[in-house]
């Protein structure tokens, strides 16, 4: 067959070919997989500019219910998943995985086994979404940058003196994921985060996280209650009050 005829034949056949993941650009292939926080190259948790009324509310809470007992009052120690952006800004060496499927990005964090569903393009109706630790997200591609907007973040467990700054219903987090390289030329995932919360913060909070490509690591099972379960099996009383 002559070349023009072959090209024409293939062109005519293209509409019938199996659909690829057209919602994602080629760079998504670089982003997919398992990543570890690069603690040396990431920003530390920034100072949070609280509005006076938010700071006052926090002090009032502490005066009312303090002193805090870390063994009991720390949500983290009680296996309550910390709300966004906590898992994204964590520099402890817990991996996470990005999985790209048709019209979707899914983030699997090992810590607390948290999971984020990020529809790409037209988000489904989320008017009735309940607040959750990971919030409700939608994403879009701006060239090779994946932009993710998150709202409806659960307030419980945050804003206490042992946790992050208070969260209001108006909180919005914007993440901009892009690919880069570190100074040694290693593949690097960057996430520029911006937190806007006009009820609580006097100004947006911005910081950048950087992650190391970790193809040999799996996102493992995070068994937060394992100690309590083990103590139960061994017949010993738990050190956690509600298990005594």
């Amino acid at each position: 067959m002559k070349r023009p005829a072959l090209l024409l034949a293939l062109a005519a056949a293209l509409p019938f070919a199996p659909a690829l993941h057209a919602a994602h650009p080629a760079v998504s292939g670089e982003m997919a997989g398992v990543w570890l926080p690069d603690s040396k190259r990431s920003d530390r948790a920034p100072r949070v500019p609280l509005r006076p009324e938010a700071a006052e509310s926090r002090e009032k809470w502490l005066a009312e219910y303090g002193p805090v007992d870390q063994r009991i009052d720390d949500t983290n120690a009680s296996c309550i998943a910390e709300p966004m952006p906590w898992p994204a800004r964590l520099i402890a060496q817990y991996p996470f995985e990005l999985l790209f499927t048709t019209d979707r990005v899914t983030v699997f964090y090992e810590v607390f086994g948290s999971l984020r569903r990020i529809p790409i393009g037209t988000p489904r109706n989320t008017f009735d979404s309940l607040p959750s630790a990971m919030g409700t997200s939608s994403g879009r591609w701006e060239g090779d940058t994946l932009v993710v907007e998150t709202h409806t973040i659960r307030r419980d467990g945050a804003g206490k003196p042992t946790g992050d700054a208070p969260i209001s219903n108006a909180r919005r987090i914007t993440e901009r994921f892009s690919m880069g390289k570190d100074e040694a030329g290693n593949k690097q995932l960057r996430n520029e985060l911006t937190i806007v919360d006009p009820v609580v913060l006097t100004a947006p909070v911005k910081f950048t996280m950087r992650y190391k490509w970790s193809p040999d690591i799996f996102v493992g099972e995070y068994l937060c209650q394992q100690d309590i379960w083990d103590q139960n099996l061994q017949g010993s009383p738990s050190t956690v009050p509600w298990r005594k």
Partner: peptide
């Protein structure tokens, strides 16, 4: 011929 080939390929 081109049309036939295109249809067959599709």
């Amino acid at each position: 011929r081109i049309g036939c080939v295109a249809m067959a390929s599709a």
